[in-house]
């Protein structure tokens, strides 16, 4: 029972990442009608925002201490990051919390990238067949990841989490069970909470603001909204920017869990597409539900007890579920009728 609960927790953070990416994919698809294979690359770009910020923050100045010498007889070098030298303790705090701070960098960067991408490329593909949309965004994804590879190299770049939350939380004790049975890293809990907050914010934005209302109306019937005299294209572009921001933030926060490398996006993209299809193409709640569901299923399947019964199930469970869902319930869990069924 404890083991199941622990695996359940394990699934939450991964599920959070799937849900965030799938949410963005669905937003883009629901508004612009474009199947965006480059969405995983946006996740990856977000992760590299964190890498960049950390690189900038840890630029060091080197001073030599004339009084001390190292074991080799050379003067001892003292390396301090510039921010620490300038801001003292606050600088050290910034270096320590570089990953959460990166969100502040990622939001404007991803917004710009998203809007440029939409205006520059996606715009021309609204009315082209889905196959061509897939292909051109696939090409774009390759280009983006190769650019990252050129500047950051091919190796994963680990990002430390803030030391304050580096430890693990004794959840079992907090829930009145035996202590030290269910222990879970803080950062993973934070990631789960973060994804819930972001998802909630996106839904609230769509549900409770006028802007969101217009976007929802546009998703339901683009033409009529246009006839009323609203420039729906502009708002849809903004939604693409929003989707890019969501993917980017998901990427930033995921860096301590998985050192980012240039093909991070591709790895997550395939899974996220499966998530979208399982949830139901075009359904936002479906995407979120399927993201968490598949994340949890995946971690449950990697329990040794289950692997003993069906070897290798943890490797294929997500795809297997997708195949079954697509065959028995073609619209996905919460999909609407008639979306992409032609």
């Amino acid at each position: 029972m404890d083991a199941i609960f622990l695996q359940f927790l394990n699934g939450l953070d991964k599920g959070g990442a799937y849900a965030l990416i799938a949410l963005g994919l669905t937003l883009v698809f629901g508004t612009l009608g474009v199947v965006n294979f480059a969405h995983g690359a946006l996740f990856m770009l977000g992760a590299f925002c964190a890498v960049t910020l950390r690189k900038l923050l840890t630029l060091e100045m080197v001073a030599t201490d004339p009084e001390k010498v190292t074991a080799w007889g050379t003067p001892l070098e003292i390396r301090t990051p510039y921010v620490e030298a300038w801001f003292g303790d606050f600088g050290a705090f910034m270096v320590d919390f570089s990953v959460p701070f990166s969100i502040l960098l990622a939001i404007p960067v991803m917004l710009v990238i998203g809007v440029v991408m939409e205006r520059g490329l996606i715009k021309h593909f609204y009315r082209r067949p889905h196959a061509e949309q897939i292909l051109v965004t696939f090409g774009l994804a390759i280009v983006l990841q190769e650019i990252i590879k050129h500047y950051f190299g091919a190796n994963p770049i680990p990002q430390p989490m803030p030391s304050a939350v580096g430890g693990a939380a004794d959840i079992g004790a907090a829930l009145g069970m035996d202590p030290n049975v269910i222990v879970y890293p803080w950062w993973r809990l934070i990631y789960f909470a973060f994804s819930v907050v972001v998802i909630g914010a996106v839904f609230a934005f769509l549900q409770f603001t006028t802007f969101g209302m217009v976007v929802r109306a546009g998703m339901a019937d683009r033409e009529t909204v246009g006839l009323i005299g609203i420039d729906i294209d502009k708002r849809f572009t903004a939604m693409f920017g929003l989707a890019a921001i969501v993917a980017g933030m998901a990427g930033v926060m995921y860096t301590p869990l998985l050192p980012p490398d240039y093909h991070l996006g591709m790895d997550f993209l395939v899974l996220s597409f499966v998530v979208v299809v399982v949830g139901g193409m075009g359904s936002l709640p479906g995407a979120v539900a399927a993201g968490f569901l598949l994340g949890i299923l995946q971690s449950l399947a990697s329990m040794t007890e289950i692997k003993a019964i069906i070897p290798g199930i943890d490797q294929i469970i997500i795809y297997l579920v997708a195949v079954i869902i697509l065959l028995v319930r073609p619209r996905g869990l919460l999909g609407r009728r008639g979306v992409m069924e032609s």
Partner: peptide, 14 residues
């Protein structure tokens, strides 16, 4: 359509 693409992708990844 795209569902076919995803299904084949899923099988290949499996």
């Amino acid at each position: 359509g795209i569902y076919f693409s995803i299904l084949t992708l899923a099988f290949a990844q499996m």
